[in-house]
Design a protein around this nucleic acid. Structure first.
Lengths: 252, 252
DNA sequence: CTAATTCCTTGATCTGGATCAGAAAGTAAA
DNA sequence: TTTACTTTCTGATCCAGATCAAGGAATTAG
């Protein structure tokens, strides 16, 4: 038994990518079994973060990216005036920390919105391994590329959409992410507060609350505290703008 | 002489990374001479785009990323209602098209704001080469990571800043990019219209015009059409918020 | 359990920036 | 050159969403 395996047995969590229900969505996607095993060996399962605990803080030295296993994280900046600006929410299978590669420091903080477990992937090891496994390297490029285009969609949302469109986009985005993981696309629980939603969308809390109330009144959704049910999905999609997925649009 | 070299000699532009004044900012950064030569061999110099011409269009199959050699590009989405939303401006040494890797199609269009030349870097070749040259792979990771954190700063701008802060941030951002390339940080020419600035910043044209006029009245800048001179750099920086570069902020 | 916080909702009011309108200055085509 | 178009600027008006205020619901602490 290698020292490495030893340490794995000593850790509180010894699950593996192979057994992980998220492997088809996460980095192991598109890897052969033997390559998954290699990836598995560099990953450290960490003990759960409690609500409000930090995974890393703005300015910390960058060493790892993290895959969310369960729970939810938010990333945020602190602006010049000391206010928080949330830049993203992270659900299971999603990778946090990629923005730290360039400057060798995390440019944002990451905090747990509820009890959250993550897989720590030391980046230097991941980079080495990606030299041996081209499909892993390609997968990393894809994840980063995806993040870039998602963020650009977010810029469109912040720059051009009104309050209704913002909230509808947000809910449908969550819906799609739940669906991808095999959960209900129409019925889910928000792990973030109204305030955090508003912060993320560039809206006041009161506006978020009013829009959600109105959506409920118009029978687009049903709300019970943090529980959301999307009642009229087509109408919600119409609100967001059918063409929100780009490809469909004719060239100009 | 290989077929490849042959084709290079036939092309209108045969300059090389080695001679390129941008090599210290662009992908060749951190590469050994022999590696630059390898990179050089996969790069195709394209004939200049005229103002208004497309480099690629939203939905086109992704095959290459492009480094801007001279001129400026904008990337944009077309929203559900057919309006344009500009997601970025690209200056010499900057890489366009990275958001296309994930879906194998460009999720945005790229258009020249003035006569612009680019180096085309076929991504499949770049990816292959990055397996042989770890520092090249690392450089690509860094460029993508940088793009992610820049976009997140843009999200903060769009979500939290008022019109004055947006315009000031925009001008200082351009200033920094000119400076990095060895040009004046305080005196430069805007290649985009007021309308494009407003579109990018989530402001109406009229607002951009008014803010710029007011900045001039308050002797922060001097404006002559598209020529900008930053007169009071410290005051402009104060406007943007001194802490706009993250690292300086204490943990909370 | 109660008390203290924090979160959510609703109403009333205010305001920064959008929108509308039109003049002036460029720019380009003819 | 004139004509047509685009861009920029400025003023007047309007409104979506922010802010202020306050009561109720939910969580958390003790």
């Amino acid at each position: 038994m290698s020292a490495h395996t030893q340490s794995r047995f000593n850790s509180t969590l010894t699950s593996q990518c192979q057994n992980c229900s998220l492997s088809a969505l996460c980095l192991p996607l598109a890897l052969a079994d033997e390559d998954i095993t290699k990836l598995d060996q560099i990953i450290e399962r960490k003990k759960p973060l409690k609500k409000g605990e930090f995974l890393f803080r703005q300015g910390d030295v960058f060493d790892s990216v993290y895959a969310v296993r369960s729970g939810t994280l938010k990333t945020f900046n602190i602006t010049a005036y000391g206010e928080e600006q949330i830049t993203g929410f992270y659900c299971p299978s999603e990778l946090v920390g990629l923005s730290g590669i360039d400057s060798n420091a995390y440019p944002v903080s990451a905090k747990a919105l509820e009890t959250t477990t993550v897989c720590e992937i030391p980046f230097s090891h991941l980079e080495e391994l990606s030299s041996q496994i081209p499909s892993l390297k390609h997968q990393i490029f894809k994840v980063m590329s995806r993040k870039i285009s998602d963020d650009q969609q977010m810029m469109v949302l912040l720059g051009k959409k009104n309050a209704d469109e913002k909230v509808a986009s947000f809910l449908l985005n969550l819906s799609n992410r739940f669906k991808k993981r095999g959960y209900s696309a129409t019925s889910f629980r928000l792990s973030m507060s109204r305030g955090e939603i508003g912060n993320y969308l560039g809206l006041a809390v009161e506006t978020v609350s009013r829009v959600i109330t109105r959506f409920q009144k118009n029978e687009l959704i049903h709300v019970d505290g943090k529980e959301i049910e999307i009642v009229d999905l087509p109408e919600m999609q119409k609100l967001v703008g059918v063409a929100s997925d780009c490809g469909k649009i004719a060239h100009i």
